[in-house]
Simulated scan of single mutants.
Amino acid sequence: MPTPNKVFALILQHPNEGGHPKNTGELLHRSLRNSELQVGESFTPASLGACLDNAVLLYPGETEEQLEKLTPPEQPSTLIILDATWRKSRKMLHLNPQLARLPRVSLTDPRTSTYRIRSAEHQHQLSTLEASCYALQQLEQNPDRYQPLLDAFAQYMDKLVTFDPNRR
Score class of each variant (00 low, 15 high):
S119W: 05
T78N: 14
F163C: 08
L107W: 02
Y156H: 15
A55R: 00
S35K: 01
D144E: 10
N96T: 09
I80Y: 03
L10T: 06
L150I: 06
S113F: 08
R90S: 11
E64R: 13
S35E: 05
L48D: 02
D83C: 12
P110S: 05
E121S: 02
R33A: 15
T85M: 03
L139S: 13
P97H: 09
F43R: 04
S89I: 06
A152L: 11
G18H: 10
I117F: 13
H94T: 10
T162H: 14
V7R: 03
T44Q: 04
L28G: 01
A55V: 02
L10V: 03
H124Q: 05
T112E: 10
T114D: 11
V105N: 02
P103D: 10
I81Y: 09
T162I: 11
T108R: 06
L67D: 05
E17N: 09
R101G: 14
L27Q: 15
T63K: 14
M1R: 11
Y115I: 08
L150A: 08
A135Y: 00
R33G: 12
R111Q: 14
I81G: 04
D53T: 08
L150F: 08
R101C: 11
L52I: 09
R116M: 04
A135W: 00
V56N: 00
L58H: 10
